[in-house]
Structures are given as structure tokens and as C-alpha cells.
Simulated assay, not measured.
Amino acid sequence: MKRILALLFTAFSLAAQAQAPVPPEIAARNYVLIDMTTHKTLAERDADAPQDPASLTKLMTAYVVFGALREKKLTLEQTLPVSKRAWDERKGDPSLMFIDTTMTPRVDELLRGLIIQSGNDAAVALAEGVGGSVESFVQLMNRQAQAWGLKNTEFKNVSGMTEPGHKTSARDIAVVAAHIISDFPEYYGYYSQRDYTFNKIRQDNRNLLLRRDPTVDGMKTGFTDAAGYCLVASANRDFPNGKRRLLSVVMGTASKEARASESQKLLNWGYTAFDAIKIFDAGRAIATVPVWKGQTKEAKLGASDAVYVAVPHGDSAKLQTQVERTDPLVAPLNKGQRVGTLRVTTTAGAPVAEVPLIVQDAVPVAGIFGRAFDSIRLWIK
């Protein structure tokens, strides 16, 4: 049985029947804008359409390498050989780090070459170092995509060169980028570096927004004839209630300048058209509910993190929250166990957000007499 507890908050003003703000015209084949603070999609166009990802592929390449570093399968100071296959990436005038078979670059250097210089040769060297072969590494990439439920993604290579069946979507690539930011903050700094010099060859990061907007701190560009000019951009801006991160993906623009300007336009619109409202602080009990057959008679329910929602800027009515929980709650209950959902809606009933509710403190099972007494009470109830 589900029990619903309605809670009305009046400390902030929001629209009862808000119309979603209309995004600006974006000159891109596909795009998506994600508010990472509230986990809400703010705008999109054909975000699930499979597309050639070009070098946006290297986001997943990097993610798998970051995972190997965390699992201590290699270290940043470890050197890797450069195979003839990595050297052969020079064919066709792709993006390169300019490593050759006489070198043994460190993993840290290869990651900078992959992320900042977008080196296809660095992608191959890292893939062989982690997976043993490019083919085995691509399997790791696809396995991770499947684990995240990315139904419009299939990788055929590690660099993003056009190949039949090699595809992803704007929304899927946003998921990969968001996981890098949240899962590997210790490595995210690579994406904000504006240039990198290796073997006396200096190359600028192709993400023009790193020089134009001080709040942009990543992430990745891409280009092939099939993909057009693509950019994943992330910005983290200060607001009175804390920092707020937005993530944009634009695919299929006409030029380097267009992918930067259209991404900037999308980010600026997201920050001005929507407000991020904190409803509950992290660690705060959202509801206190009765527990049966437990050593304590109540349990505090809350969210794992602070609860934010994204709402149109300048709205004037109230938000309504409802707690839906299992009833009866019977001990034992483990700390962190999900037992309900916090639903946030407008007063007109339009959904805004759903947040899992978890038990904040464990409730052990009561002794034999306490359990027996509550069993009788539940039977009468």
C-alpha cells in the first residue's frame, strides 16, 4: 500500500501553470541542454537521433581509462609503448598528439593528448594499454554504454573516425559527459586545460568557450564530414543558493565558430530562463513516519543529496510536494534503504521532479514481545 503525505511550501514563489520557456533558435542538427544540479533536461532537438559522433567518442574512451586508473590497472606515471597501429593514425590528416614508435609516453601525457589535443594516436595507445587491443577496448566502451542503457549508441573505434555502425546521440553523449564529471572529479581538470605541448609541439584546445567564458570548464569538440562540427560544453556558475552546472551538447553545426556560439547561446539561455530552487538540504528529514516491529517506533526519511528543482524564472505561485511511502513500514530497515518517493509538482499538478526517499537511520528489529505486540496491532488495523 502507498500512503501519500502532502506538504505545501510557501517560502518561494513559482508558477502554478507555468509554460516552459521557449529556447532560442539553435543552428545545430541535434542538441540537448541538461541542468546537472537538478537533473532536468531544459531543451532539446532530436536528442535521441543516432548520429556520427566524431571525436565526442573520446569522452567514452577517456571514461574507460579513468576507470582503469581507479581500479589501479595502470597509473598516471606508467609509460606505454606506441604501436605501429597508433602511428598509422597519421593517415588521412586526423587530429594527432604526434607520438611515434620510438616513444614511451606516460599515461598522463597520453590523456592530455587525448583530451586537449584530441589525438587519435593517443586514443589508440591508451586503448591498447588498457584493453590489450583496440578491439577489446571497444568492447569495454560498449559494455559501459549498455550498463547505462544508452540505446542509441554503438562504438566501432576509439577515436571517432567515421565507420559504418559507429553512432551515438546527443542525449547519450550527454550521459557519458555527465558521468565523467560526477564519477571522476579528480580527472575532470584535464578538460579545462587550454593548450598542451608535447614533443615541442604546442596545440590549443579546440573548445573556444574555454577562452570566452570563464565559467566554462570543459569538455570536448568533434568534427568529421559526416558529423559536422560538434561540441560538448559544461559551465559552472555561482548563484546565491550555490553553484549550478549546465551541460550542453550540440551536433551537426556548420563551423568551429558556430559550435561555440550556439553552445554559448544555449548555456546562457538555460541560466537565465530557469532558476534552480533548493527544496531540502542534504541530510534533512523530509518526513518522519511510523515503523512497526522495530526498536524505535519512527523512521526519518530523506534524500541522499540536497533536493533542487529547475523552474521557469520569475514564476509567482507555489510548488507542492508529496511523499509517497510504503505503508506499513516493517523493521528491520537499513540506512539508505529506499522506501518512498518525493514528488514535486506545480499546484496545477504538472510534474516537476521525482526524488527517491531513503531511510536516514537504521531501524533494527524489536525483541520477540515487541514484534508480537505490533503483529496484533497490525492485524487489528
Rank of each mutant, 00 (worst) to 15 (best):
L14H: 12
F184Q: 09
K156L: 11
I4P: 06
D46Q: 13
Y271A: 07
F369R: 13
K297N: 10
N30F: 01
A366R: 00
N30K: 00
Y191G: 03
L208Y: 11
A43V: 06
N199P: 03
T341A: 05
A127L: 08
M251F: 07
K335H: 12
K318F: 11
R90W: 05
E44L: 13
L96I: 05
P290S: 12
G92V: 07
R245Y: 12
A28K: 06
Q193L: 14
L56F: 05
R45N: 07
E44I: 00
G283Q: 08
G294E: 05
G67I: 05
P364R: 13
I4D: 10
G242P: 07
S55G: 10
K381Y: 11
A28Q: 07
I201D: 03
F373P: 02
L319M: 04
M1I: 12
L69K: 06
G340H: 00
T224Q: 12
G222T: 03
I201A: 04
A177H: 10
A317L: 13
F223H: 15
K167S: 10
N268H: 12
L208G: 14
T347Q: 14
A20Q: 14
V158A: 01
T57N: 13
A28H: 01
G283K: 11
T38S: 14
V176C: 04
V355K: 05
G270Q: 04
L231F: 04
K2H: 08
T197H: 03
A122R: 08
S375I: 03
G283N: 07
T162L: 05
A122F: 02
F198L: 15
T288L: 09
K265I: 09
T75P: 02
P24W: 12
V355W: 02
I277S: 00
V307T: 05
Q322R: 13
A233Q: 06
V330M: 07
E128Q: 12
R194L: 11
K91Q: 14
Y308A: 02
Y31C: 02
L126D: 02
D121I: 02
V309W: 04
R202D: 07
K335E: 15
P23G: 10
L76G: 03
L80C: 08
A235M: 10
L126W: 02
I201W: 12
S136H: 14
K243Y: 10
P185Y: 05
A170P: 08
L56V: 06
D52V: 10
N157L: 11
L42I: 09
A372C: 01
L96S: 09
P214N: 14
N207V: 01
S136G: 03
Q337H: 09
A178Q: 11
